[in-house]
Design a protein around this nucleic acid. Structure first.
Lengths: 162, 162
DNA sequence: GTCCCTATACTCGGATAGCAAGTGTCCGAGTATAGGCGG
DNA sequence: CCGCCTATACTCGGACACTTGCTATCCGAGTATAGGGAC
């Protein structure tokens, strides 16, 4: 199992977008430059987040992206769902119904035990993701980033949203 | 994010192998026929489980596969690790160190908050998988499978390990 | 009748193609801005 | 001096190649078995 790296980009972008001044927007190209990632490909993921209602796009000359709602109302699960899709990681193809020992469909009213077990683990994963928001990420940043880095990032932001 | 379907096959195979009489072995071709899956491809996953020490392979004419240890000592996490590998789903590429606001390496002693958050969710997933064993799957089967299916599967098993 | 040997048939194991999804890139449609023009 | 209009430059958005990993398959190496022969 492998999670696309777009998830990492998207989450970092959310933390940066949370620091954009009210009423402004940050272009995708600036976000890409800030993180050192391919601009065109990052745009793809930003579009997915815009469609999911996590960020909103501002068209036009001084346009860009900004958060569509407060940082504390954006869970990590929202971001993962937007970028990776809502398809479950484990897909039960009901192979228990195939083969020589197969029964009539009516014999399979009880759900597949393996499906239930895997779903239980996936629920725990999603629960943990839903319990954390972008605001939590910002709090963690506030306690770990050096003051000089804060100042430099602030200057870059003012330049970027000019 | 998508989990390979080999996981489903592997788990079903574990439940079937747990019912193999002591001292016998079940060929991969029989397992494939029982589940209605491609024999050659299933063999690939069985080899992975054999390398991981979950099942053991018996060579020769009346050879096949059997569980390498008791069903209660095989967790779902063991199977997932064997088939899907031990690589974490979320891979942090430390993009926070790139771009205009980058600092010296010494400034990044604190771990990346996003990495920590995703790891927390993944730990919850693994914890849930590690808490369930193949024996639990068998217990679930015992309460949900009809008596006629049990009989038919037993007959098939006797024929298969002959 | 018993033991040994050999040929066999069946098993696993790794090396080899095909395909789908993730990765990366590009160019066109649309819009707020900035400058110029007229009143 | 103020308002309007137009051209512009910048933005997002979706359509188009490429690469990696999953899916699927095959054939060769190895071994326990079954049968036949010798003693």
């Amino acid at each position: 199992m492998q999670l696309g790296e777009g998830i990492e980009w998207a989450l970092h972008c959310c933390t940066v977008l949370a620091l954009v001044p009210e009423g402004r927007a940050l272009p995708a190209s600036r976000l890409a430059e800030f993180h050192g990632v391919p601009p065109a490909y990052l745009a793809k993921h930003l579009q997915a987040m815009a469609q999911a209602g996590i960020v909103e796009s501002v068209p036009g000359r001084r346009g860009g992206y900004r958060l569509a709602r407060a940082a504390q109302d954006i869970t990590l699960l929202d971001v993962v769902h937007a970028v990776e899709g809502r398809a479950p990681a484990f897909r039960c193809t009901e192979i228990r119904r195939r083969g020589p020992a197969a029964q009539a469909s009516s014999a399979y009213r009880a759900p597949c035990g393996i499906h239930v077990a895997m779903q239980r683990a996936e629920d725990a994963w999603q629960r943990e993701l839903a319990a954390q928001t972008v605001a939590d990420l910002l709090r963690h940043l506030a306690t770990s980033v050096t003051p000089v880095a804060v100042r430099r990032a602030g200057e870059w932001m003012q330049e970027a949203v000019r």
